[in-house]
């Protein structure tokens, strides 16, 4: 059971990380307001192979 939970947690962690990578974003809500840290692309790129979900 423990192992199953750990696996689930790990999957969630990976998908969260993948999500962060996709949006190149680090964000939080605090008692003094929100912040978003954004990274532009390291290099120029054309459209990726897999189309995204849109706006």
């Amino acid at each position: 059971m423990m192992r199953k939970n750990k696996k689930k947690e790990m999957q969630r962690e990976i998908s969260r990380r993948a999500c962060m990578k996709k949006f190149a974003k680090y964000t939080a809500v605090t008692a003094l307001g929100t912040f978003v840290l954004l990274s532009p692309k390291k290099a120029q790129a054309s459209s990726p192979a897999t189309p995204g979900g849109g706006f």
Binding site: T30, L32, G33, T34, F35, V36, L37, L38, S39, P40
Partner: peptide, 15 residues
């Protein structure tokens, strides 16, 4: 870092 931080002013004052 070549990164952009968008932030509310109170948090900015502390950071």
């Amino acid at each position: 870092a070549n990164q952009y931080l968008i932030v509310d002013i109170p948090f900015y004052e502390v950071f």
